[in-house]
Amino acid sequence: MANTENIAHAVIEALNARDFAALAAKVNEDVALSGIGEGSDNGREALRERFVRHFAANDETYQDALVMSDPPGNTVAIRLTARGNLAGGSYSKEKILLLELEDGVITRMAFFTGS
């Protein structure tokens, strides 16, 4: 079983630092993506491109992580507070980051935003 708590916090740290190399090291080369920009996509390069565009538009950081996982550690849900700035001002909202893992490597990454 992967140490899901460590993986979750490493992903959040990489996102907040805009360290796409560190993030890419945690994901499968064909990682499935959704909730980051429009539609879905696959691959490390798509991951980098989507997050670069997202952070350029939102200047978002993630805090207050609550990490939950299934017993084998294959599915991890992270409840986050996303704080950022848009042209209209600052915001704070809840997001869920879903990670699916295989042998400790992220095979799927999806963001869900609360209303």
Rank of each mutant, 00 (worst) to 15 (best):
V67N: 03
R79C: 05
V11C: 03
D103N: 13
I7P: 04
L101F: 06
D64K: 11
R79P: 00
L99Y: 07
D30L: 08
G35P: 03
L47P: 06
T75L: 10
H9F: 10
T81A: 07
M1Y: 04
A2Y: 05
D70R: 01
I7V: 13
K93I: 14
R108I: 02
L80W: 04
G35A: 01
A57I: 03
A32M: 10
A8R: 06
G35L: 02
G114V: 13
T107A: 04
R50W: 02
I106A: 07
A14E: 05
A21I: 09
V52N: 09
A87L: 14
L97F: 04
G43V: 02
M109C: 08
F112R: 09
G73K: 01
F20V: 01
E38F: 11
E60G: 06
G39W: 00
T4I: 01
M109W: 09
A21Q: 12
N85R: 15
L101C: 09
A32Y: 11
Y62R: 07
R79S: 07
N58T: 15
A17G: 10
G35R: 03
A8H: 03
K26R: 15
V27M: 08
A32I: 07
E38W: 07
T61L: 07
L99W: 04
A65K: 04
G114Y: 11
D41I: 01
I96H: 03
N28L: 05
L80N: 03
S69R: 01
S90L: 02
V11E: 02
S40K: 09
R48T: 11
K26C: 11
L101T: 09
D103R: 09
G88R: 13
T75H: 10
G35H: 03
L33G: 04
I7Y: 06
A22F: 06
F112I: 12
T61C: 05
N74Q: 13
G104L: 08
V105E: 07
N74T: 14
E49S: 14
D19Q: 08
I96T: 12
R83W: 00
N6D: 14
S34P: 03
A77C: 07
A46T: 00
A8N: 04
D70E: 09
H54S: 10
F112H: 12
A17H: 11
L23W: 06
L47Y: 05
A10R: 13
L23T: 06
S90E: 12
S115M: 12
G73P: 02
S90Q: 12
F51A: 00
N6Q: 15
A17Q: 14
R50I: 01
A57E: 13
D41K: 11
A82L: 06
G84P: 06
E49A: 14
N58R: 15
A22I: 06
Q63H: 15
I106F: 08
N28Y: 11
V67P: 00
R50E: 00
S69V: 02
L66E: 14
